[in-house]
């Protein structure tokens, strides 16, 4: 666990009307503030925008946050964005998690504001619970052997081998047959230019 008790900040996004259109984001924010270990909850119109991200960084500093929950869209879309954002504020990127209240909530519960709001609150609660158990993680560094293996010496394998070799890398081209060439070597002329293939 990061130093000391969890100090969680929750950032609830309106996403214009994408979320705020069917979810009462103010109520979600207020609810989030009541959850254990949450020290601050903030609502923002566009959390992913530059001002939105600046706000996250400011609040992290101001409240000395060590966990961040961003209640907005799918992590499949913006996890890299917000990881980078909290990192800029000096937090390990793995201490951030997202609550997907757009794709999984506001966009699929369009006509029942109460249910949508309730669901969004639940989603935030689940994310906050997860955040409490997040740990800083170090991405491991691995060395790279500067050489490539190309399996198959048809036109594709030959082209890939040439490109890599021209870029300065050692290439091993393994071909099953006694000669490289593949199917193209058997062709007489090739479309669309009708020129000879070897």
């Amino acid at each position: 666990m990061a130093k000391g008790n969890p100090r969680i900040g929750v950032f609830v996004c309106d996403c214009g009307l994408n979320i705020a259109g069917s979810v009462d984001t103010e109520a979600v924010k207020d609810y989030a503030a009541t959850l254990p270990d949450v020290v601050v909850a903030v609502r923002n119109k566009y959390t992913c925008s530059d001002p939105g991200q600046a706000e996250i960084r400011r609040v992290i500093g101001e409240h000395n946050l060590n966990r961040v929950v961003i209640a907005s869209c799918s992590p499949r879309l913006h996890e890299p964005t917000f990881r980078a954002c909290v990192q800029q504020a000096g937090l390990n990127p793995y201490l951030m998690t997202m609550a997907n209240i757009r794709e999984h909530c506001s966009w699929v519960t369009l006509h029942d504001r109460e249910a949508a709001t309730r669901k969004a609150q639940d989603i935030v609660r689940v994310a906050v619970a997860q955040a409490r158990w997040l740990h800083p993680q170090d991405e491991e560094q691995l060395p790279v052997t500067d050489a490539a293996l190309v399996i198959g010496g048809g036109v594709a394998g030959i082209q890939a081998a040439l490109d890599l070799a021209d870029a300065g890398h050692q290439v091993y081209l393994v071909e099953k047959q006694p000669s490289i060439g593949g199917i193209m070597a058997m062709l007489d002329k090739t479309y669309p230019t009708m020129d000879c293939s070897i």
Partner: peptide, 26 residues
């Protein structure tokens, strides 16, 4: 060109029999 390239080692009449390791280090 592929046959002549100083940085391409051709292994014809050959087959890959085993691969171990992982990204960057096969």
């Amino acid at each position: 060109d592929a046959g002549r390239h100083p940085r391409i080692k051709l292994l014809t009449y050959s087959e890959v029999e085993d691969v171990s390791g992982y990204v960057g280090n096969f």
